[in-house]
Simulated scan of single mutants.
Amino acid sequence: MTAHWMMFGIKNCDTIKKARRFLEAAHIDYRFHDYRADGLSAECLQQFIDALGYQNLLNTRGTTWRKLSEAEREAITDADSAKTLMLAQPAMIKRPLLRAPDGTLLSGFSETTYQNFIQEKS
């Protein structure tokens, strides 16, 4: 089985749309995994946490975070509590996550970062 580029996120996210357009314009063959349509296993999320740290995955700038009560936000004190929240509400995961064929992950999107990451991993 050939390793390939993977993008993880939620298809209606504006940042996902920008990142997908960038990959398509760069002729990067990738597969998109939508957390809502395709699901998210605890094992997959744990791999993301192991690679990037829960602090780098937890989207504290989005509306889903802002909708949490102060007590719910304060209860996120470690990787386990963050993982539970992200599994229950995948919109809490920063988007997009791009996985290179070698398994390396990149969180977020900017054209420069993607250009450098793709060049380094291709």
Score class of each variant (00 low, 15 high):
residue 93 I to K: 06
residue 84 T to M: 12
residue 73 R to H: 00
residue 23 L to P: 04
residue 54 Y to N: 09
residue 9 G to I: 06
residue 70 E to V: 14
residue 88 A to I: 02
residue 29 D to R: 04
residue 47 Q to I: 12
residue 15 T to P: 09
residue 70 E to M: 10
residue 62 G to H: 00
residue 41 S to I: 02
residue 75 A to V: 12
residue 65 W to M: 02
residue 21 R to Y: 04
residue 67 K to R: 14
residue 49 I to Y: 01
residue 75 A to L: 09
residue 48 F to A: 13
residue 32 F to K: 05
residue 23 L to Q: 06
residue 91 A to S: 15
residue 56 N to A: 13
residue 33 H to V: 14
residue 13 C to I: 04
residue 52 L to T: 11
residue 49 I to K: 03
residue 16 I to V: 13
residue 89 Q to G: 08
residue 54 Y to K: 08
residue 80 D to V: 13
residue 78 D to E: 12
residue 18 K to I: 05
residue 50 D to T: 13
residue 89 Q to E: 15
residue 59 N to F: 03
residue 16 I to G: 00
residue 22 F to M: 05
residue 35 Y to G: 06
residue 92 M to L: 14
residue 22 F to L: 10
residue 83 K to E: 14
residue 86 M to G: 09
residue 85 L to G: 07
residue 61 R to G: 08
residue 37 A to E: 10
residue 52 L to M: 10
residue 15 T to D: 10
residue 59 N to P: 09
residue 28 I to D: 05
residue 38 D to Q: 13
residue 66 R to H: 09
residue 93 I to Y: 10
residue 52 L to S: 12
residue 49 I to F: 02
residue 34 D to M: 08
residue 27 H to E: 15
residue 87 L to F: 04
residue 16 I to M: 04
residue 89 Q to F: 10
residue 76 I to H: 01
residue 39 G to P: 01
residue 29 D to P: 00
residue 68 L to F: 11
residue 88 A to F: 02
residue 52 L to N: 13
residue 64 T to F: 00
residue 78 D to Y: 05
residue 72 E to H: 09
residue 63 T to C: 01
residue 84 T to H: 12
residue 15 T to Y: 03
residue 55 Q to C: 09
residue 90 P to G: 02
residue 91 A to G: 14
residue 42 A to C: 04
residue 27 H to K: 15
residue 9 G to N: 03
residue 70 E to F: 00
residue 67 K to S: 13
residue 74 E to Q: 15
residue 18 K to P: 00
residue 80 D to S: 14
residue 78 D to H: 13
residue 29 D to N: 07
residue 62 G to P: 05
residue 74 E to M: 14
residue 10 I to G: 08
residue 87 L to A: 09
residue 55 Q to P: 09
residue 53 G to I: 11
residue 73 R to A: 00
residue 12 N to K: 10
residue 90 P to W: 00
residue 53 G to P: 05
residue 68 L to R: 06
residue 45 L to F: 03
residue 90 P to E: 03
residue 70 E to H: 04
residue 60 T to W: 00
residue 23 L to S: 08
residue 64 T to D: 02
residue 70 E to N: 07
residue 32 F to N: 06
residue 61 R to M: 03
residue 59 N to H: 06
residue 68 L to I: 10
residue 42 A to N: 05
residue 92 M to V: 02
residue 83 K to M: 15
residue 77 T to N: 13
residue 89 Q to P: 04
residue 66 R to I: 01
residue 34 D to F: 06
residue 93 I to G: 11
residue 68 L to N: 02
residue 38 D to A: 12
residue 25 A to S: 14
residue 89 Q to T: 12
residue 46 Q to N: 11
residue 69 S to D: 03
residue 77 T to D: 05
residue 82 A to Q: 10
residue 67 K to P: 11
residue 60 T to E: 02
residue 22 F to H: 12
residue 51 A to M: 05
residue 34 D to G: 05
residue 42 A to V: 05
residue 84 T to I: 12
residue 9 G to D: 01
residue 47 Q to N: 07
residue 39 G to D: 02
residue 65 W to R: 00
residue 73 R to I: 01
residue 51 A to R: 06
residue 43 E to V: 09
residue 90 P to I: 01
residue 59 N to C: 04
residue 34 D to Q: 07
